[in-house]
Amino acid sequence: MSINEVVIVTGASSGIGKATVVELSKKNFHVIAGVLKEEELKLFTETNVEPVLLDITNEDDIASLVRLLNKNRKTYKIVSLINNAGIEFNAPFELLKMEDWRNQFDVNLFGQVALTKALLPFLRKSHGSIVNITSVGGKVAMPNYSAYAATKFAFEAASDSLRRELKDQKIKVVIVEPGGIQTEMAAYSGDLSLNFEKTLSVEDKKLYSNLIKSAVASQSNFLKHAMTAEKAGKKVAAIATKKKPRTRYSLGMDAKMTLPMVRFFPTKFVDWILELNRKLT
């Protein structure tokens, strides 16, 4: 009876998730690729990729995945869970509706927690790894990114605590902190912010229009030269299958520059640098 080494990837329909699935399939892992829509089940033609409907905020979808793993428990060895799913809607703290705050926390934190809790028995049996895709935004909160950054700060904290809790159980917990990556979500998030700005009242435009437009322009300019999703996917696939991974990895030049700055320089200096960068865009 052959044993399949299985990696589970959420948010697999595009961007880093899709690129990671493709790279893992090349390495001959059996990849369970979580997608949101029926039509996305046809995205992968590789024979060792098993697409499944997986909305991580949906208890039924998580239960369905657990049933699949139990059904194949004799032939599936769960090597890694890659928590990659995420959404991003950027707007000023004051103007973002509470519904939008909650939606981002539901996907970017609570959904990740629910899925991880459900799969821990399988990872405990295999001594596998959990790879949590957070963000440079989990260490530095840019203006206009308050809700998204808050979810990533929280996911970083949860990941740190989980790693310390699971050490004696021989389950590895790894944090990957991407900066700007050329993905559909990154490009779309800028459009969402600009469309949101058009709906503002005259008074709110006076307060926030320049901030929103400059934040989007800064992101758009950087993405022209940012790491591609394909390159990021190769790195995530390599990290997820390492026998002895580091605790943290950063992806992209902005992450490699920003993270040390936040660590070593005073907060007011960091604020000044970020504001200068936004105004010069």
Rank of each mutant, 00 (worst) to 15 (best):
V107R: 01
S161E: 07
G11W: 04
R246V: 00
I3W: 05
K242N: 08
D160V: 12
M98I: 15
S159N: 02
L54D: 00
I212L: 07
L41T: 05
K213W: 09
N58T: 03
K37H: 12
E39N: 13
P143L: 11
K234H: 09
N103R: 15
V7K: 03
A187W: 13
E38K: 14
T75C: 10
P51D: 11
V131E: 03
K27I: 00
K256T: 02
K77Y: 10
A186W: 14
A150S: 15
K77S: 14
N132A: 10
K26D: 09
S146W: 02
G86F: 11
K231D: 14
K125Q: 13
S193H: 09
V31E: 00
D168F: 13
M98G: 13
N28P: 00
S220T: 15
E40R: 06
H30D: 06
P51W: 04
L200S: 10
L200H: 07
N84T: 07
S161L: 11
L166P: 05
L36W: 04
A158F: 15
K170Y: 14
K243A: 08
Y76A: 01
A154Y: 04
Y249E: 01
L166R: 08
D100P: 10
F122P: 10
K170S: 15
N90H: 10
Y76I: 01
V6R: 09
L119N: 00
L166M: 14
E275M: 10
V173R: 03
Y249L: 03
L276Q: 13
P245V: 05
E203T: 11
T75W: 01
M1K: 07
L280F: 10
I273R: 11
V35F: 08
F44M: 07
Y148N: 02
G128R: 02
M253P: 02
N144F: 12
S214T: 14
E184V: 13
S126P: 08
R263Y: 12
P51Q: 05
Y249N: 06
G190D: 07
L65G: 03
L123Y: 02
L166H: 07
E184T: 14
R73G: 00
S250G: 04
K170H: 15
I62W: 03
K170M: 14
F89P: 04
W272S: 15
L280A: 15
P51R: 06
G15Q: 04
F269T: 13
K37F: 12
K243V: 06
A186C: 13
G15L: 09
E50L: 08
R164T: 11
M142T: 10
Y148L: 07
S214N: 15
E38R: 09
D191W: 11
V7H: 06
L200R: 05
V216F: 08
A91G: 12
K71M: 08
A33T: 00
A215V: 12
V35T: 04
